[in-house]
Computed example of a mutant assay.
Amino acid sequence: MATGYIFISVFLLLADGFIVRGPAGPLDAPLGSSVVLPCYVNELLLMEGLEVEWRRTDSGIMVHLFLDGESRPEAQQQDYHDRAHFFTDQIQHGNFSLRLDNLRAEDEGQYTCRVYSQQDSGETVVQIKYPVRLVVSGSDESISAYVGEDITLNSFVDSHITPEHIEEVSWRKTDEHKDVLVLLYQNNETLSDSSDERYKDRVEFFTAEIFKGNFSLRLKSVRTEDKGVYMCQVFAGGLSANATVLLERLVFSSLHVMVLVFCIAAAFGAVLLLCCLTYCRKKHTVTSGTIRNLELSLVFCPNICMFFAFIFWGLTEVLL
């Protein structure tokens, strides 16, 4: 009789204990996303005297606290305000999981969930890992362009970071002595006024593509001085990465070539006609009519060539 009583007492004592369970392994979560850190017990606990703490395992920083039947956000460390939340309606069922929003690079690491009740206490450890790092890709090959045309300098953010979690994207031209700011994207806004004077009103992002991680740059009316190396640098969640694009060879368009041809023809024709006219006047072997024709040609032919040169130059300004 006594032995049976002792057995029943031990069984009841053991039954009062509980086990805190967590995930089977590390949680993979991309920057900027939300993740649920599992923590639950194998039996229902009395709410009276129940306390649940979530802390960083390495530093002991308080992530969130449940005490006296309610969440205590005032106990949180500042970095976790409005980012760490209990599933309050699930706590009475033994679910003490925590949702962590807007993940940052510094959130990676281990978290300890400690549960205290009137009967017992227990804990589990949860680890957050990032499956990818911030990667920015550009053009594999250098870019050639005609002077005056519009070109695209490619840059893609290859990660699961959403645009609203990208802190800054800057395009710069890396000159020998200093970097020139081409265009800046900051706080979900393109800051065109921050561009260097030589790029104002000539550069823009493809706004409709930004949500896909496309931060390619459109450069309008390319000039010869635009040749060089351009770098796109991205900052997100405490991480940074960059990609470079080389604008290597700038060639003249066919319209520019036509302008050059007519200018050369005007100059060469004028010199040739002048030499012929001078020679004929010295030799006195040609008629006055021939000399008059040469004089008229000297006046009109170069001017006609220059007229066409100005027409083609005007077309380059309008079309390019």
Rank of each mutant, 00 (worst) to 15 (best):
E51P: 00
P73W: 06
G22L: 07
L46I: 09
K212M: 12
T162R: 15
E74F: 01
G237N: 02
Q119I: 07
V257F: 10
P38W: 06
D175V: 02
Y111W: 05
S137E: 15
I128E: 04
S288R: 14
T152L: 15
F312H: 06
S216N: 04
D58C: 03
D226L: 02
E317G: 05
Y130H: 12
D140P: 09
R218F: 09
S137H: 04
A2L: 11
Q110W: 13
Y185A: 06
R114N: 13
S59I: 02
V136L: 10
T112V: 11
V169G: 03
W171S: 00
A309W: 00
G49V: 03
H81K: 15
W171A: 01
Y146K: 15
D82Y: 06
M62Q: 11
F235W: 14
F215R: 08
D175W: 01
P73C: 04
I151E: 11
V169K: 06
V261M: 11
I210F: 01
T190G: 03
Q90N: 10
Y185E: 03
D79N: 12
V259L: 08
T88S: 11
Y40Q: 12
E106R: 13
H81F: 10
N188W: 06
Q118P: 00
V234Q: 05
A243L: 02
S195E: 05
M47G: 07
D196S: 13
V257S: 07
H256T: 02
F86D: 03
E123V: 02
H256R: 14
N95V: 04
L296F: 07
L45W: 00
C301N: 09
E164S: 11
F205R: 12
V126M: 04
L277V: 05
G269K: 00
A75D: 06
S194C: 05
V147C: 13
R83C: 04
Y40G: 11
E48K: 10
L184S: 02
T174D: 11
K220R: 14
T224M: 14
D79W: 03
A105Q: 14
K173P: 00
L272P: 00
D82V: 05
Y40T: 08
C263P: 01
V245R: 01
S117E: 04
E189S: 13
V318E: 06
F87E: 13
A105W: 09
G94L: 04
V10D: 12
G269T: 02
K178Y: 10
S121Q: 13
H85M: 12
G228H: 03
R223E: 11
R218I: 01
T207K: 14
K220D: 10
G4Q: 11
L181F: 00
H93L: 13
C305H: 06
V126T: 12
R72G: 01
S297C: 12
K283I: 09
S139F: 02
D201R: 06
K212V: 01
T124K: 08
L319F: 07
Y5L: 15
P163N: 03
V135W: 12
L98Y: 01
A75H: 05
